[in-house]
Design a protein around this nucleic acid. Structure first.
Length: 883
RNA sequence: GGGCGAUUAGCUCAGGGGGAGAGCACUUGCCUUACAAGCAAGGGGUCGUAGGUUCAAAUCCUACAUCGCCCACCA
């Protein structure tokens, strides 16, 4: 049990963050034990790449998850936040290959097995970077359950899912046009292709008619692919080409013959209306080729260089060099008619940014239609709810237009496809266990398919593979379906949709009930943070300079309804200042609490107005914070606490306790201390999910020996704290204190100079309230206050104001400048008159009186009365000064 | 070509059918024994444009403009 002691005047996160994280982790506070007596709350972390380092996107994503997890944990749920990392096929393999390259080696020099050993070694050595960084952020994950997409359990789940899909006929292997990345040397799926608007050219080329003088003019953006042309297609309705249909053309350069065919796909409007068909290197041409039984020629190889099929002159050339040469050759032969500029979308690899080459190749696919349908229904029927709702449309639109998913990759690092091919009889065998003999012909020359699965294939199983599936585990039955998925909006397709359809296919239940989508973290100029731009802000550096809590608070308050968040250091400073404010308010409380353990059962009579007020406001903070969290308005919840702590607790309540604490009777001071302790303690609980480190640190000073904040119960509603009378009375007092301060500032009354303020309060009940609480005004507006129903002689040498129905006189002796006072009052009167005419206009409107709700009308009437009284007081004061 | 978001104070952004808000910056005065990463007071906005719905619109609807993002097989 530590004692309360004085704290330094500035909060230093470095002194406490590591300490508390170790305390929590080693104390097992993050551990979630299956307990049927409790409600379960579960978030499965979107696994960052093992190769990764924490970036701002991770920081935001994980802060939001941590806020939810800590909050639910305090609410008494068994809260499991399950962490893990993703093997990230291409990224990791590329990293290790780059390392090998420095040794002058390629992966082929090592061979598959040795290479994979190197990758695992790399993972063991560097794979913890990001999880260590998540700890710095304060992530309260259950690290004892940390998983990896290629660990034994996840791999078993992958194999099981593949086999069951295969057995159901939902996985097939086919020669198909796919997106080939010549740099990564693998196929990638449709969504891994990034389309970028690129400035290019449209080349018009003559294709001569065989045995004739005529020609067909075609237009293409990629002249090098003409070497793989196997037809020219026109629209059947296109009059211009009627006479060419069925004729044969001579493909320039290659000198091959091409038929002229018709296909509805061809647009008469675009280019020349004649389309060169290259089934080997264009998705549309591939389809046309299938419809017309055209041969497909691969002229561009896996390395992006021209193949022998392209002809001796071009074979071996890089595809871009080849384009140049083809254009030159055409020009020389007089077949190039013109070149136009054209801006068009070009596909790039999302990993390495290389231009994708559509290529025909034999790959594995998942048949999507049957899987997509239940996933669409689950969201339509709100079994999975998107927050904000608008992302539902994006999800549905994608699944409704889904195409089959290419799942094989020509990589070594990943889950190997569990299929064995027999070279003797051609049989392919999918199996859970290794196959060493062909089950059909008995050949022992069977070989496992060389490809691995798309990394997203294993991510798709993450919500249940991490909980033990395909085994029937206690975790699975307790935590599944998980509660909510928290993720950035850019992986709805890659990940969210795939988890939903996979879960529905294998768990017969949704993977999570809610999907909480947040935006991207952009730089100050609104650009995506990226390595190539060098505009990224390193969260770890921010944690070093401002502390993890500041970063978290800034990210949470910056995140609004799925919109992107620009990173501004000013905001970070603001968050840091807030935490420092909290720290100092706590110092104040601790200094005054001393060894006092406080009484918790003070009877109501002992409370002053300020106490009743702050307790009532505190209750509102509890209610609002909880409400906003329930609705995933995390930023709004944090803002409620910011305002409560700064504007109400610090600026008013602490100031109002000082007279009692410094000069009050022991009993009075004890009451103030008890309220300080209760409100600060409760507020720390409310703040803990957002700023876990500083709140835990203060908590242990405030309540030495108490259970740590991380598992303190979330503040419940205490209706008995509600005190609307106190709130109204305090609002009036605050209003009057501000008015007096305003006068003093305007009149340049030195801060130390006291003033004898007179308040004229005609109403008797209100007058009693003022009599009782005028010491607040005296303390905070520096002076003495006398309260009267009316006074015969209103002082001339006084500044005047009206607030909350009360006339205020601040006698200033010689300091008063009548002209200046008249000017000030006139300005005030103008504002009152303007507002009054607006209100009266409204009250003259019969439509308003008839249709507006009663309370709105009553409110306007109240305003009218108050403004009228204010006007009269100001006018009379001006008349008096004018005499 | 579709879809989505944004447009509010000098800057960055909340809010959202009935009196325009915050932080930063700015002006003035304060090192007042929790805090100068602070305290007090203040200036500053016809809430992108045009229509519409409504007793009432910054807020809802429709168009448009500008910016940004996503999707899309027109060579």
């Amino acid at each position: 049990m530590t004692e309360r002691k004085t704290l330094p005047s500035a909060y230093n996160p470095k002194l406490v963050e590591e300490k508390w994280y170790r305390f929590w982790e080693e104390g097992g506070y993050f551990r979630a034990e299956v307990d049927p007596a409790k409600r379960s709350f579960c978030i499965v972390m979107p696994p960052p790449n093992v190769t990764g380092e924490l970036h701002m996107g991770h920081a935001l994503n994980n802060t939001l998850q941590d806020v939810l997890t800590r909050w639910r944990r305090m609410q008494g749920y068994t809260a499991l936040w399950l962490p893990g990392t993703d093997h990230a096929g291409i990224a990791t393999q590329a990293r290790v290959e780059a390392m090998l390259a420095k040794e002058g080696l390629s992966r082929f020099d090592l061979g598959r097995e040795k290479f994979l050993e190197r990758v695992w070694a790399w993972k063991d050595k560097y794979g913890h970077t990001i999880t260590m960084q998540l700890r710095r952020l304060g992530a309260s994950c259950d690290w004892e359950r940390e998983r990896f997409t290629m660990d034994e359990g996840c791999s078993e789940a992958v194999k099981e899912v593949f086999l069951r899909l295969y057995e159901r006929g939902l996985i097939y292997r086919d020669n198909y046009i796919v997106n080939w990345c010549p740099h990564c040397r693998t196929v990638i799926s449709d969504i891994e292709v990034e389309h970028k608007e690129t400035a290019g050219h449209l080349y018009y080329i003559k294709y001569p008619v065989k045995d004739g003088q005529d020609h067909v003019l075609i237009a293409t953006t990629r002249p090098e692919t003409m070497l793989g042309d196997t037809a020219v297609a026109v629209n059947p309705a296109d009059e211009r080409y009627r006479d060419f249909i069925g004729k044969r053309l001579i493909l320039p350069l290659a000198k091959r013959e091409l038929p002229v065919i018709t296909d509805d796909y061809v647009e008469t409007e675009f280019g020349t209306g004649a389309l060169k068909v290259t089934p080997g290197h264009d998705p549309n041409d591939f389809e046309i080729g299938r419809r017309h039984n055209l041969p497909s020629v691969q002229v561009i190889g896996a390395d992006g260089r021209m193949t022998v099929e392209a002809g001796a002159r071009y074979a071996g050339l890089d595809r871009w060099e080849c384009r140049k040469l083809v254009v030159e050759d055409l020009q020389r032969e007089g077949l190039l008619v013109k070149i136009e500029d054209l801006s068009h979308a070009v596909g790039h690899c999302y990993r390495c940014d290389t231009v994708i080459e559509p290529t025909v190749s034999k790959q594995w696919f998942v048949r999507m239609k049957p899987l997509a349908e239940p996933a669409i229904r689950a969201v339509q029927e709100k079994r999975v709810v998107f927050i904000p709702e608008r992302f539902e449309k994006i999800y549905l639109n994608w699944l409704e237009n889904i195409r089959d998913w290419c799942i094989s990759r020509q990589l070594w690092w990943g889950h190997r496809i569990p299929v064995w091919h027999c070279p003797d009889c051609g049989e392919s065998t999918a199996s859970r266990d290794d196959v060493d003999r062909c089950p059909r012909c008995g050949s022992e020359r069977v070989e496992q398919d060389p490809d691995v699965l798309d990394t997203w294939f294993s991510s798709a199983l993450w919500p249940f593979s991490t909980l033990g599936w395909p085994k029937d585990t206690a975790d699975l039955s307790f935590f599944y379906p998980t509660s909510v998925l928290v993720t950035a909006r850019d992986i709805i397709f890659f990940w969210v949709a795939r988890m939903i359809f996979t879960a529905l296919a294998f768990m017969e239940n949704v993977p999570f009930r809610e999907v909480f989508i947040h935006g991207l973290v952009l730089d100050a100029l609104g650009r995506k943070m990226s390595k190539s731009l060098g505009n990224g802000v390193d969260p770890i550096e921010v944690i070093e300079s401002h502390g993890a809590d500041s970063l978290r608070f800034m990210l949470v308050t910056g995140n609004t309804s799925g919109n992107d968040l620009r990173f501004h250091f000013e905001r970070l400073d603001g968050a840091r200042n807030f935490i420092n404010k909290l720290w100092n308010a706590s110092r104040f409380a601790l200094m005054n609490l001393g060894e006092d353990t406080g009484r918790k059962d003070l009877d109501g009579a002992a409370y002053e107005l300020a106490d009743r007020w702050i307790l009532s406001r505190y209750r509102q903070a509890v209610l609002k914070t909880t409400e906003h969290l329930d609705l995933y308005d995390l930023g709004e919840a944090a803002r409620v606490l910011y305002d409560f702590v700064w504007d109400e607790f610090c600026d008013w309540y602490i100031e109002l306790t000082k007279p009692r604490l410094y000069r009050g009777t022991p009993q009075e001071a004890a009451v103030a201390r008890a309220v300080l302790r209760k409100v600060l303690g409760g507020t720390l609980k409310l703040l803990h999910p957002f700023v876990p480190f500083v709140s835990e640190e203060i908590w242990h000073h405030l309540e030495p020996g108490a259970v740590p904040l991380i598992i303190q119960p979330w503040p419940a509603d205490e209706p008995e704290l509600d005190d609307s009378a106190a709130e109204e009375e305090m609002a009036v007092l605050i209003d009057i204190i501000r008015s007096i301060r305003h006068i003093r500032a305007e009149m340049k009354v030195p801060p130390g100079r006291r003033a004898a303020v007179i308040l004229i309060v005609p109403e008797e009940k209100a007058r009693r309230v003022f009599e009782q609480n005028k010491h607040y005004i005296e303390e905070l507006a520096a002076g003495t206050v006398s309260v009267a129903g009316d006074i015969a002689a209103k002082p001339a040498q006084a500044a005047h104001a009206v607030a909350a129905g009360v006339e205020i006189f601040v006698p200033l002796g010689g300091l008063i400048d009548i002209k200046k006072e008249q000017f000030r009052l006139t300005k005030e009167l103008d504002a009152v008159l303007q507002e009054l005419s607006r209100v009266e206009g409204k009250l003259r409107n019969t439509g308003f009186l008839a249709k507006a709700p009663e309370e709105v009308v009553a409110k306007e009437r109240g305003k009218q009365a108050e403004l009228t009284q204010k006007r009269e007081a100001l006018e009379s004061r001006l008349r008096m000064l004018g005499q």
